[in-house]
Design a binder for these strands. Structure first.
Lengths: 236, 236
DNA sequence: CTTATAAGTGTATAACTGACACTTAAGAAT
DNA sequence: ATTCTTAAGTGTCAGTTATACACTTATAAG
């Protein structure tokens, strides 16, 4: 920090600037499986290889703004949950130059149109169980994001960023099973999640996955925030 | 990322480079209280104001290496636990220029010599309950670090980075009380921490804080790592 | 009207958490 | 020598929470 910036510019970076980029690890949930958004690069270098979406931070924006902007420019997606994962700064991580990337992971609800829409951007949703080889250190970024997601899911109702406004309890359970990568007991899951008190049962049913149909619920955000302030422990 | 680096250098940063710095939030524990290491700046700007230690990342090192190097150069401290907190990137955070800082928090054992040694570097250990106004956004960095420390202390035996090799259970309890900012029950604390199974009782006593003396313990790292792999839940 | 399928529900046992009070060791004071 | 002071060390019980587990119900399909 602020030793002498003018000197720093000259002595540290002259002729070999350090560029700052943002990469986004975008997770979505299509009511059954956890998905990851990837892009097929259409230009050199790494033409035709799969990659996360990312670009450079501009001088007049902070990194969070950059992440939102880049995501919007590259996919049309906006207004979703984004959280900083951490920096990836190995000096030789990018053969094209010294680029430090601040990875962000994003969570979004996958509606029908999202599955279509991203195709216009040469993007594709992959099942997290079947992620291809990615450019640079992007596989490592994905692995760290999944680990972070697992940890955070224990203390935040992350599920609600990933589900559409109305969802069934079996859908919510599928999501948590995808995040934790383990089967959960149906009865105990329902008991716990209901006991937390921020689910609102609706009078509608979703019959897309069974004849009987499952009741739809809604997440009561006010109730949740009240509970968080009191120190909710969200253990599934 | 990697759209076209040559173009990026030109169009994004020409004449207004974005510099990358690292700031270190260094916590220590002196067997009684949680402390924070601060520096009195001896040069303009912000002469004579208190500040965290930080400097610029060099082109041939990653940010973690930079944090260790900067800490060593500024304090003589080396080989301590360091973890990335996150980026601070408000474009106007530093009036001297566009500097993005990646904050790292560090935990260290405070031995007698450390209390002396830092004086040679115009540094001073402050009680975390009494931190002065700091330059730039450093107070915010400290606040976020304390919050992170609180969260992490629940899932990692952070205490052991902050205590010297041999410690008593009452010292360990004081540390957790400082981190969580609440009193804990002596009997229950002892019960839980012992049940975790990675404390080795020694035949020595520390009589610095009572006539009776408290038994010294040692942290068994192998045992701890074995437990972590099996999925230890470190809840104090 | 039978069948197949996923949704929905309750209970009993074990494990854990949290509250709580007296005894002990040893130096200090008399 | 005896008493006093101080922090260290110890166990139990009650309440809560976690886990394991099996049958009934609603409805569309055949």
């Amino acid at each position: 920090m602020i030793k002498d910036i003018t000197k720093a510019k000259k002595s540290i970076y002259e002729g070999a600037p350090l560029l700052v980029a943002v990469d986004c690890i975008v997770f979505g949930f299509d009511k059954e499986r956890l998905k990851l958004l990837l892009f097929k690069r259409k230009v050199a270098p790494f033409m035709d290889e799969w990659s996360l979406i990312g670009s450079f931070v501009k001088v007049d924006e902070n990194v969070s703004e950059a992440a939102h902007r880049i995501l919007h420019e590259s996919t049309g997606i906006s207004g979703i949950f984004l959280s900083e994962l951490g920096s990836f700064s190995n000096p030789s991580r990018d053969p094209g130059g010294r680029v430090l990337s601040i990875a962000h992971y994003a969570l979004m609800r996958l509606e029908e149109q999202d599955l279509q829409a991203v195709a216009n951007f040469q993007a594709q949703w992959f099942d997290v169980e079947a992620i291809p080889d990615l450019v640079l250190d992007h596989n490592e970024m994905v692995a760290q994001s999944l680990a972070r997601l697992k940890v955070n899911a224990h203390s935040h109702p992350i599920g609600f960023e990933l589900l559409s406004e109305k969802f069934t309890i079996p859908q919510l359970q599928l999501l948590y099973e995808a995040i934790f990568q383990q089967k959960l007991d149906r009865r105990n899951f329902r008991k716990k999640i209901k006991a937390m008190g921020f689910l609102e049962k609706l009078d509608e049913k979703d019959k897309s996955s069974s004849k009987k149909g499952a009741y739809l619920y809604r997440f009561n955000k006010e109730e949740y925030e009240k509970l968080m302030k009191e120190g909710l422990n969200f253990v599934i």
